[in-house]
Simulated scan of single mutants.
Amino acid sequence: MYIGNHLSASKGYAAMGRMAVKLGANTFAFFTRNPRGGAAKAIDPADVEKLLELMREQQFGKLVAHAPYTMNLCAAKEDIRKFSKEMIADDLRRMEYTPGNYYNFHPGSHVGQGADAGIEWIAEALNEVLTPEQTTTVLLETMAGKGSEVGRSFEELRAIIDRVELSDKLGICLDTCHVWDAGYDIAGDLDGVLEEFDHVIGLNRLCAVHFNDSMNDRGSHKDRHACIGEGKIGLDAMRRVATHPLLSDKPFILETPNDDEGYRREIALFREWRE
């Protein structure tokens, strides 16, 4: 059972680990740099070692790092694609300070080029930056489908994977709000959605879950997160996701609109469901 939330990396790696423990978590997510872009903060190897020691002591699950929102591997403009490739390559080098964990990113927005072109650009970028030596698994996130987002369906994510040479380095992060907003009925037919995922992509690639309720009706393509049990997915359905046997070994990451006390309550609720 691994549950945590997004934490700020501004105070360092060890500080994130201590905060996770304080909230009752045994994993967490963090942005590799400012979520709106910019240069990454220099890594202090001693600070990272303190985090790794704490993770061993507390029996943490895998961490789920998150790329900045400004990274768009399928942008229409070549300079943005180039900048994004440099960013992900740098992030993957930095991830090796915490080996064997996950690096999650939004596949990108094709900005009018069409999903097929976007898929080709994303796969091309991944073919350039992935290496046989890396220990990090790169996760494509399921998207709500707002605007020209790529990844609004399991088929689009599968199409990216099929075009990547080192596809063994790829997995999926299933965001509950996003798949609901994309039209998948995880409230009424969770087993059916997971069966479809397995048929199209393969459950062996489902590595992590972003655990969020949604403010929107199913299929709205809007992507607005809600606290657990306070949205349109609902408390009972969220509990079924949390306790589904096919997801029992995955790290669950809360991205709900909360303060620390809210996260503490949701982490405690998740643990109660799993008891």
Rank of each mutant, 00 (worst) to 15 (best):
F31D: 04
D116A: 15
V241A: 09
A125K: 04
G100N: 03
V48I: 14
H110S: 01
R239C: 12
E53K: 08
E195N: 13
G61C: 12
N72A: 04
P132D: 12
A9G: 14
I233H: 07
F270G: 06
P35T: 04
M238P: 04
W273N: 10
D249K: 08
L170C: 06
N104R: 03
K50V: 10
G219C: 00
R94N: 08
P35M: 07
R152A: 15
S153H: 10
K232H: 09
N101D: 13
R271Y: 08
L166P: 01
N101A: 02
K222W: 00
H244M: 06
E96V: 05
G234M: 07
M1N: 14
E266R: 07
G112P: 08
V21H: 03
E86T: 02
A115E: 11
R274L: 15
D181Y: 03
I119E: 01
E165H: 12
Q113C: 08
G219R: 02
E196S: 06
D223F: 14
T27M: 11
L269N: 01
G37P: 11
D191V: 08
R264K: 15
N26G: 05
G234Y: 09
E141F: 02
F252S: 12
C74A: 00
F197N: 00
E120I: 04
P251T: 14
E261I: 07
M16P: 04
P99E: 13
T131Y: 02
K250H: 14
S8F: 04
L269F: 05
P132T: 07
E128W: 05
E96I: 08
N34K: 10
E165W: 01
S167G: 01
I80E: 01
G37N: 11
A208F: 10
F197V: 02
V150N: 01
N204V: 02
P107Y: 15
